[in-house]
Amino acid sequence: MIPLQAQLPDGGWTYVVSIVAVSLYVSLTAVGLSTLFSLPVALGIGFTDFRGKRLVTAVVNTGMGFPSVVVGLVVLILLSNSGPLGSLDLAFTPRAMILSQFILATPVLLSVSLSAVEGVDQSVRDAAYAMGGTRVDVGLAVIKEARFGIVTAILAGFGRAISEVGSILIVGGNIVYSDGQSYTRTLTTAITVEARQGRYEVGLVLGVILLALVLAVNGLGSWLRNQGRGERSV
């Protein structure tokens, strides 16, 4: 049996480490940006009654099932040299991968955080307003009351982003430098390459690392929820 070290592509373990780093950089950035976008939008939708609110909610929920390859294809068309955003020169870069993961994670984050925000009793908003809170204070009070649901939303968004393969393969190109350092190769896209090349042990190692990452992030989320339960919110 060939030892694992010998099966690793050029770069050895630094190849693996760089893949993990790119995966985390892309997914955490995408989820961070998606959180900054989704929370105010969830508050806006949750707080206001407007015509078509149910339609908007239905569209957001449908977005959770977006096929990632379709998202990747559309993002690539937008970012390609002949596309409307071609001048930004983002195709086959980690930024393009962040964009596609942002698009995939946002409906998940938005939908779960919207239901968390809508679950907060009207009395919390009333109390924050009556005690002299501004609109921002009222929003923050609701976010803090909905914090367990929002942590769940962020974790769900991260789960969607880190485990996704189709769109980042298309928009990132799965590129490694000649010295074995990853440029746009992530854990998921690396597993597809390793499987195709018959290096199943390497693929399995990467798979275990991916699972461990997801487990660690979920563990952190559970810990935060337990720490926060009954502790201070507002």
Partner: peptide, 25 residues
């Protein structure tokens, strides 16, 4: 300031609830 029929408290320690109005100011 207003007190509602339902107490409408935040999921936080009592002192954080009582200091809320002071903090937002």
């Amino acid at each position: 300031s207003m007190v509602f029929q339902e107490p409408s408290l935040f999921n936080a320690p009592v002192h954080r609830n009582v200091s809320y109005g002071l903090r937002v100011r």
